[in-house]
Simulated scan of single mutants.
Amino acid sequence: MQSQPDFSAFSGIRAITLDLDDTLWPIWPTIERAERVLLQWLHTHAPATAQALQTAEAVRAVRNEIGSLRPDLAHDLNGLRRESIRLALTRAGDDHTLAEAAFEAFFAERQRVELFEDVLPALEFLAARWPIVALSNGTADVHVVGLGKFFHASVSAHRVGFAKPDARIFDLAAKAAGVPAHSVLHIGDDAMLDVKAAMDAGMLAVWVNRSGVEWPHEGATPHATVASLAQLCEGLSTKA
C-alpha cells in the first residue's frame, strides 16, 4: 500500500517535464492497434510481406535484426520501425519503396491515444502554473495527439539522438523550459528511466505509480509517489 506522498520539496519548482507513454496514456494497446493497422495495410499492398509478418515472433525477429544492423538508430524508434518494414518487404520480394507509406499507416494510428481519465484536468492545472516540456523516449507528438496547447516545448529521444536515462536529455528539457535543472519537477511512470534518472540529473521527481508496485531501487527514493495525476495536482495545489 502506498504511503501518503510528501510534497514539501516542491515549493521552488519553476517548470515541469512530463513523460508521455504510460504516464498520460497506456502505450501497449496503442502499439498493438497500430501494428494491426500496419498488417492490414500490408495485406492490401504487399501481401507476401504481410504473410511473412503474421506472428509477433516474426515481427520481433526483423526488428532485432535491424537493431543489430543499424546501431545508429538505437534511439530512433521511427527509424527502426521504418527500416524493419523495408527489410521485410525486400525479403518477401515486395517493393521496398512501399516502406514509407507502410510506416505512415502505422505512425498515424500510433498517434491515436486513449488518455487516462485524469490527464486532461491535470494538464489544465499544471499548464496554468508552470511551463511544461514533454520528455519522451517514444515517438508520440503532443501536437498530433491533440495536447499541444498544454506544452511549452517537446524533447524526444529520436530527435536529439540520446534517450532517458541519459542526463543530457534532461538537461535539454530544462534548457527548453528556460530554468536550471534543480528548479524542474519531472513526472513519469518508469522508476529507472523517469524517476531515478531525473534525480540523477539534478531534478525533483514524482513517480506516477498507478499499479501500486514497490519502489525497485536501493538508495534514493522519489521525492513523491502518487497513484494518479489527480493526486499529484491535489498535492501541488498547496505549493503553487
Rank of each mutant, 00 (worst) to 15 (best):
Leu18Val: 00
Phe162Cys: 15
Arg110Thr: 13
Leu80Pro: 04
Phe125Gln: 00
Gln54Met: 10
Lys164Asp: 03
Leu147Gly: 08
Pro47Cys: 01
Ala127Cys: 13
Leu232Asp: 01
Asp94Leu: 07
Leu236Asn: 06
Ala176Asn: 02
Asp21Asn: 11
Gln231Phe: 00
Gly93His: 03
Ala153Gly: 03
Leu236Tyr: 06
Trp207Pro: 09
Trp25Ala: 06
Ala88His: 03
Asp21Val: 02
Ala48Gly: 01
Ala181Gly: 09
Leu20Ala: 15
Leu89Trp: 09
Asn137Gln: 06
Arg82Tyr: 09
Pro222Ser: 09
Pro47Val: 09
Pro216Ile: 02
Phe162Asp: 04
Val184Gln: 00
Ala176Glu: 11
Arg210Leu: 12
Arg168Ser: 12
Asp171Lys: 07
Leu24Thr: 05
Gln51His: 12
Ala157Leu: 07
Ala101Val: 08
Gly148Ile: 10
Glu117Thr: 12
Lys175Ser: 11
Ala34Trp: 04
Thr17Gln: 03
His43Asn: 05
Pro29Gly: 11
His96Asn: 00
Ala101Asp: 13
Phe103His: 14
Glu114Ala: 15
Val226Leu: 05
Arg82Glu: 14
Arg60Trp: 00
Pro71Tyr: 12
Phe7Pro: 10
Arg70Gln: 13
His143Leu: 07
Ala74Val: 07
Phe10Trp: 08
Gly67Arg: 12
Gly148Leu: 13
Gly188Ile: 15
Ala58Lys: 10
Lys196Glu: 11
Met203Ala: 12
Thr238Val: 13
Asp189Gln: 12
Pro222Glu: 10
Ser3Phe: 08
Leu185Cys: 14
Asp171Phe: 04
Glu65Phe: 01
Asp118Glu: 10
Thr44Trp: 01
Gln40Tyr: 01
Ile31Gln: 01
Asp95Gly: 01
Ser156Asp: 06
Leu20Gln: 03
Val208Leu: 14
Lys196Tyr: 01
Ala134Gln: 02
Met203Gly: 07
Glu214Pro: 01
